[in-house]
């Protein structure tokens, strides 16, 4: 398994072609109703980009993020991740990609309960086959970087929201991924903590060239990103450079 390229090239890190997602549910009469959430999304994101996805609630942002993160599969269309067709990968290969190449940050933090911050950060290393003691040593290093060294032995319920999110970011970073996917990472945090977290993301993007795709409802959070994508009812309506001019997408 080759890793995602870290050098700039003409090839995109993420390439979506005519990607659709729909859910089938049974209604009260037992009949199947299909609701389409994403409509023919075409999107290319290059290595090193910092992208913010915005849109109303229910517009399909999380659905898109889950597909980008190889947690979910599209109904039709294709998703190329650093040149590889994700649909062709086995569940083991997908697990490995999630482990090595992608870091997730969630709105609800999603730390493992009743487990210390240290062990939470170390777990992805365990799944990468690294020994527990080496994993812990490395995890402590990462916690030190995010200023959480003193909280290493705290369990999630003994940490503030901002601290939990920084633990989650440390966990996302521990395997040196080339892509960070953050679904409303500041949704549960106050504005001061939000800005701290965003500065951390900005630094990671600037200094280490990590590609960041984040979902947010707030304009001042989105302002950290270099590129803005608007979703509306499953369509990409706006895709613009954050400082540049708005470019209306072709799908309308």
């Amino acid at each position: 398994m080759s890793s995602i390229q870290t050098t700039h090239s003409t090839q995109s890190l993420i390439q979506l072609e005519q990607l659709c997602k729909s859910y089938s549910l049974q209604d009260v009469h037992g009949q199947t109703i299909t609701t389409q959430v994403l409509y023919h999304i075409n999107l290319a994101i290059h290595q090193g980009e910092f992208v913010a996805i915005m849109g109303h609630s229910g517009s399909g942002k999380s659905t898109l993020m889950n597909i980008l993160g190889c947690l979910d599969t599209p109904t039709s269309g294709s998703y190329w991740l650093s040149g590889k067709n994700v649909a062709a990968l086995s569940s083991n290969e997908l697990a490995q990609i999630r482990n090595r190449n992608i870091g997730f940050v969630f709105q609800g933090f999603n730390l493992l309960k009743r487990m210390t911050a240290l062990d939470n950060v170390a777990t992805p290393l365990l799944y990468a086959g690294i020994s527990r003691s080496r994993s812990r040593k490395q995890a402590l290093e990462f916690l030190r970087h995010t200023g959480l060294e003193d909280f290493a032995m705290h369990q999630p319920n003994q940490l503030s929201g901002g601290q939990q999110q920084r633990v989650a970011i440390s966990r996302a970073l521990i395997n040196h991924p080339s892509l960070i996917l953050a679904d409303e990472p500041t949704g549960n945090l106050d504005s001061q903590t939000s800005n701290d977290i965003m500065q951390l993301f900005e630094k990671l993007n600037r200094d280490q060239g990590i590609t960041i795709v984040l979902v947010t409802h707030e304009d001042d959070i989105a302002a950290y990103a270099k590129r803005l994508i608007h979703l509306k009812d499953g369509h990409v309506t706006i895709d613009k450079n954050n400082t540049g001019v708005t470019a209306l997408h072709e799908t309308f």
């Binding site: 947690l71 090595r100 730390l111």
Partner: peptide
Amino acid sequence: TREIGIRMAIGANQRA
């Protein structure tokens, strides 16, 4: 279930 989901998101494969 949620714990399993988190573990999968951070790289646990089915066998693990």
